[in-house]
């Protein structure tokens, strides 16, 4: 059993190497090797500092320099950005509420930047400070709640201040484009054997699809449409969180046995 300090160091190492695009296999190997070393070192009364020589940051950098970058890292990062952009836009297209204007472009760019780079930086900072503790999960919760709240707030601002409208079309054209993009964003991840991403795209769009069907193609601003999509979204979110908690508890049980 390793000390909390050692576990925190290994977690930092893993996150740092992951964010630098190193191969999963290499990360697992060096983590296992350092874990083995730390077990012996701690059994002989030494601390993590004996490994890092004082600066965790410098030490992780020295390890990182010797590990090759995963060649697919940049390709997958670009694909992930396109995927996220799709996930943000497709539900609006299906609801028929989509309009391409400068505010929408700025909003999506900001969400992508904060949602990817920002999240990596914040998550790394939180883990570096608190390690694998309750404080970390609470900080994650606060960060993501603030992030979601800002997204909702920004949506209201966009509706009231659309800026320069670049392209707009009627609801049926939006719906057709949305349906085509939805099919692409489900089929391509399935071909790439990324079933989770395909399912995630579908679940994100499901509230709009159900609301559209139930209201008989009603306006996304009508009260019944808003209620139905909100309820479906809530049910999906609760179910997903429930499944995640159940599987993580099952995994914990498996590991402790």
């Amino acid at each position: 059993m390793l000390s909390k300090e050692a576990e925190k160091f290994l977690l930092n190492l893993r996150l740092e190497l992951m964010s630098r695009g190193k191969k999963d296999k290499d990360i697992q190997e060096i983590e296992a090797e350092l874990r083995d070393h730390l077990k012996e070192a701690e059994a002989h009364g030494q601390s993590v500092e004996s490994i890092t020589g004082g600066s965790v940051k410098d030490y992780i950098r020295s390890i990182s320099e010797e590990l090759p970058r995963d060649k697919g890292f940049i390709k997958y990062s670009i694909l992930l950005l396109i995927y996220l952009l799709g996930v943000f836009i497709i539900p609006d297209l299906i609801s028929g509420d989509f309009e391409l204007n400068t505010s929408v472009i700025l909003y999506n760019l900001a969400v992508l930047a904060i949602g990817t780079v920002g999240t990596i930086i914040i998550v790394k900072k939180i883990v570096t400070k608190y390690g694998d503790s309750k404080k970390t999960y609470i900080s994650y919760g606060i960060f993501f709640s603030l992030f979601m709240a800002s997204m909702v707030g920004a949506q209201f601002i966009i509706r009231n201040h659309p800026g320069i409208v670049i392209a707009e079309s009627n609801q049926s054209v939006n719906l057709i484009i949305g349906a085509i993009l939805l099919s692409i964003f489900i089929i391509v991840p399935l071909i790439m054997k990324q079933g989770f991403l395909a399912l995630f795209t579908f679940l994100i769009c499901l509230p709009e699809i159900i609301a559209k069907i139930v209201t008989g193609g009603g306006s996304p601003e009508s009260e019944s449409y808003v209620w139905i999509s909100a309820i479906v979204f809530f049910v999906i979110a609760i179910t997903a969180i429930g499944i995640l908690i159940y599987t993580s508890k099952k995994e914990d049980k498996k590991t402790s046995n």
Binding site: I30, E33, L34, H37, A41, Q46, S50, I51, T52, G53, G54, Y59, S62, I63, E65, E66, L67, P68
Partner: peptide
């Protein structure tokens, strides 16, 4: 040498 300094070296020798 700090204890951990051998691991970047081992990675380099292996590479």
């Amino acid at each position: 040498i700090s204890d951990g300094s051998i691991y970047p070296v081992l990675l380099r020798l292996s590479k």
